[in-house]
């Protein structure tokens, strides 16, 4: 896999918590700290969606956050990839019958990659990011 110059060693991710239990959020940060250290490949968390290539969404999207998720998604420049981390973002998980869900994530914004697990291990999240890189490559080629 060859990354185009614009992504090579600089894949930036933005993390969006849409009402998760913190489990996935902690595992995302775990995946970025020295044990796994993907920063040596240029993967890092950024503070603004306008700088990001990949959007990591955790949580089942509660009512209050649905509109904010759409706005954050709209702010990201193309090409962009959305990763949904955790089971509750895919189906609602244990929160499936809650009255306050606008999710799952796929109902609110288009999702490219699902990482299942409650919570997924950091290795699984990194595997998802590797798949995101491949997808970004394909999107770049199409342009």
């Amino acid at each position: 896999m060859r990354l185009s110059p614009s992504f090579n060693r600089s894949l930036w991710v933005f993390h969006f918590n849409s009402g998760s239990c913190n489990g996935c959020d902690i595992e995302i940060v775990c995946a970025l700290t020295p044990r796994y250290d993907p920063e040596r490949f240029g993967i890092k968390l950024v503070g603004s969606p306008r700088h990001a290539d990949v959007l990591l969404v955790t949580g089942p999207v509660v009512h209050d956050m649905a509109d904010r998720l759409r706005r954050v998604y709209a702010q990201m420049p193309n090409p962009k990839v959305v990763m949904c981390i955790g089971t509750c973002g895919q189906s609602g998980g244990v929160f499936f019958d809650s009255y306050n869900l606008d999710g799952p994530v796929g109902d609110v914004i288009p999702v490219d990659i699902y990482v299942p697990g409650c919570a997924p291990r950091p290795e699984a999240i990194i595997d998802g990011v590797v798949k995101a890189i491949a997808l970004l490559e394909r999107l770049e080629e199409k342009k």
Binding site: G19, S20, G59, V62, D64, M65, F95, S98, Y99, N100
Partner: peptide, 9 residues
């Protein structure tokens, strides 16, 4: 902003 209605469920 993270209210999921856990008690209700």
């Amino acid at each position: 902003k993270v209210h999921r209605g856990v008690e209700w469920m």
